[in-house]
Design a binder for these strands. Sequence first.
DNA 1: GCAATAGTGTCTGTTAGACAATATCGA
DNA 2: TCGATATTGTCTAACAGACACTATTGC
Lengths: 241, 241
Amino acid sequence: MTESVFLEGYDPAAYERPSVTVDLVLMGLRGGRPAVLLQERRDPPFKKRWALPGSFVGIDEALESAAERTLHEKARLERAHLEQLYTFGAVDRDPRMRVITVSWLALLNEQDFAAALAANPALLPAAIDVPWAGDAGGPITVATPGGTPIDLAFDHAAILALAVQRLRGKLDYSEIGFALLPELFTLRQLQDVHEAILGTALNKPAFRRRMQDRGWLAATGTREEGTSYRPAELFRFQRPL
Amino acid sequence: MTESVFLEGYDPAAYERPSVTVDLVLMGLRGGRPAVLLQERRDPPFKKRWALPGSFVGIDEALESAAERTLHEKARLERAHLEQLYTFGAVDRDPRMRVITVSWLALLNEQDFAAALAANPALLPAAIDVPWAGDAGGPITVATPGGTPIDLAFDHAAILALAVQRLRGKLDYSEIGFALLPELFTLRQLQDVHEAILGTALNKPAFRRRMQDRGWLAATGTREEGTSYRPAELFRFQRPL
DNA sequence: GCAATAGTGTCTGTTAGACAATATCGA
DNA sequence: TCGATATTGTCTAACAGACACTATTGC
């Protein structure tokens, strides 16, 4: 491991290395509205500002493991849909030192979202406002449950925006939406999730047809209970074929 | 910058930091077939094996800048479509030490591809075989111009596979395909590019309509020259609206 | 029966693929 | 004129949105 071992004679030992972190966008639905779990910064920079939960990547830890560990440490959850978003590496994104962060999207269903909040009351379930604004989607904003707008620390607003954009883009053609639902759900609940994420109303028959045609829905034969009207059938997600 | 400045009291100075690199998938077309520029490794590990061109990220260098610098150092190109793909961080992806790599897709048109090759003859223009294999796309393989299969170094086969997948996925609905064409091009050339990347034939009238409807094509009024048949109109890419 | 929502059927406009007809160039 | 390819027109099948109709539950 001396000089010239590396690409083009570059000696890595002679160069300063950046810190690498993972940051998690813990998204879910709260009362049917999109929300994200934030953490208040205790120290400068951005002291007392809200930030995405994150942590440093250990030297013997895979990126995915670091994301999973962070999910467990911050939200006390064992499992969630976890997918890498993008890596942010502007030189001055952290004023203290060079930090490159690998951002991840974590999707929680309503129950897991509430459980995470209960397990770690320091987390804030911030509401995400997703204006429809055409197909590209307008600028997204975050606010406290009380409605006060939040100005996120670091470049976390950009990370969150990317998370929402990714989720929206994959919602219709991928299985990603089911990560926001419980094991058993009705078609109406599925549509509600899609509408909440997209910020727009969807056509009911067309939506049902699409989802059925995708082969994602396994009928359970059981129905929801406790309604004062006709109870809807409960479905379970199944991978096609 | 003392202890407890960081998230959750983590002291970064006390922890070993990983090296961070950028790796470039320099893709283009060579004789109408998808190709990628590779570099032979001079030293272990993977000595004499082919790898994606890459370099270490400087401590005062943004990720994107590192990618651009690498593009310039390895291919002597000033500009190209450059987009971040994914960050690979398995612990043992480099047997010597911990290296996290941020991979990038760089798209070159046929002329730039040839120029890069001329400027750096150490690069190998490897052919990418893209079987159609349904919509998801089958396993992609790389081979020398002579046809000998190439087993890429490190996890670079996975990076390349992701690059092809990304390119394919975005081809139809984004402007990405134009990065593989010269300033002026005919509709047939555009269709050829799409067919080469997708590995399948496309319907001509439908393809033309789609591209026109996207608002991407600006007619120039001029026509190609030197054909022995009816010359096609030359178009220029224009951003819609 | 009534209110409310689940679930379905049908019409219509849009879009892609198939196919073929017409246009235009060099030789 | 012919050969080759550009360019356009038309038919049809697939699909989404709109809308309305039927079904089923608790009260």
